[in-house]
């Protein structure tokens, strides 16, 4: 009995110490970093107006670095430091230290968004906190390059891998909660239940772009279908991703849904954050499969072009 239990413990520990999700978090690091950088730069010339005490906002102290600011110069120093740290986060330098700093600075910025914040910003800062415990610089990072130059392999300890794996699972559960609860709320709403939600949203100027109005006016019944589909895919997401074959369909469906929100409602950062989270769903093995498929496709294309040239290409005089 004890021997069986010990064997089970060994199996659990070995399984949890395997590096399975390293490529996804590295891609997520880059994409989230670019979104954060976009948020800093798109409001760059309005930063004092929107985020400083001299501006339009009323800010209650809520653990923001900007609360410590006493002059526009100090505000600018923090704002520019935040941009610099985000850049370091994107290139993957400084590993966990920069990830922690990035969280502190973006959390401070998020507190200043107040009424301007959306669900994407909310998910972004929660995920940034969880990413502190995840190894995000294993791939596509300066850290990785520096290790290779020193001739050392970029390896993580098994303790670190266990923590990493569990926190990747935590982020995926957080995503499932986002989709599942929002779908539950949709089911409770009258306009979602009768399929007219998109029609009503298209009438709100602040949340609809001309493309959504055009779509709803010209494809009314399709818009009703899309209202129902959005509920269905969100409810199904936590279950579909458990299936290796079907999860790609769920990811594609949700990416299309969020792309629709981007084009129709203009919620750029919200859509991009939601889409980028999908990178975590896939394992390293699946990414490597895609990379090798891409490589073999490249080789086949080159072969095809070469054989095409040999068959139909102009013959040189010597030939």
């Amino acid at each position: 009995m004890k021997a069986k239990f010990n064997q089970w413990i060994i199996a659990v520990v070995e399984n949890m110490s395997k590096e399975k999700f390293l490529i996804g978090p590295s891609i997520l690091r880059i994409v989230l970093g670019v979104i954060m950088l976009y948020n800093y730069f798109i409001h760059y010339f309005q930063r004092h107006l929107l985020f400083s005490h001299e501006g339009i906002g009323l800010f209650n102290a809520n653990y923001s670095l900007y609360d410590l600011v006493k002059s526009p110069l100090q505000f600018d120093i923090i704002y520019h430091l935040a941009i610099l740290i985000t850049m370091l986060f994107i290139i993957g330098y400084g590993n966990r230290f920069i990830t922690i700093l990035n969280f502190i600075f973006y959390h401070s910025f998020y507190q200043r968004l107040s009424y301007m914040a959306d669900g994407g910003d909310n998910l972004l800062y929660i995920v940034l906190f969880l990413l502190i415990f995840v190894n995000v610089t294993t791939y596509f990072s300066v850290d990785n390059v520096l290790y290779k130059r020193r001739g050392k392999p970029f390896k993580h300890s098994s303790w670190s891998i266990i923590i990493h794996n569990i926190f990747v699972v935590a982020i995926i559960i957080q995503m499932c909660i986002v989709y599942f609860t929002s779908a539950c709320y949709q089911l409770m709403g009258e306009v979602w239940s009768n399929g007219t939600a998109l029609y009503y949203i298209s009438q709100v100027d602040a949340f609809s772009r001309p493309s959504l109005t055009y779509f709803v006016e010209n494809f009314m019944y399709l818009s009703v279908l899309f209202s129902y589909l959005s509920i269905f895919i969100k409810l199904a997401f936590p279950f579909i991703i458990l299936n290796k074959r079907l999860k790609l369909c769920a990811v594609l469906a949700l990416c299309s849904f969020h792309f629709g929100i981007l084009v129709g409602m203009g919620l750029l950062s919200f859509s991009m954050v939601m889409i980028s989270m999908e990178f975590l769903i896939f394992t390293d093995q699946e990414y490597k499969k895609v990379f090798s498929l891409k490589e073999s496709l490249k080789i086949n294309v080159v072969r095809l072009i070469f054989s095409f040239k040999q068959k139909f290409g102009r013959k040189t005089p010597s030939q």
Binding site: G119, I177, V178, Y185, M188, E190, W192, A197, I201, V204
Partner: peptide, 11 residues
């Protein structure tokens, strides 16, 4: 908060 335009979107 994951209401995200639900149960009743802004109309």
């Amino acid at each position: 908060n994951w209401h995200l335009f639900a149960p009743d979107p802004l109309i």
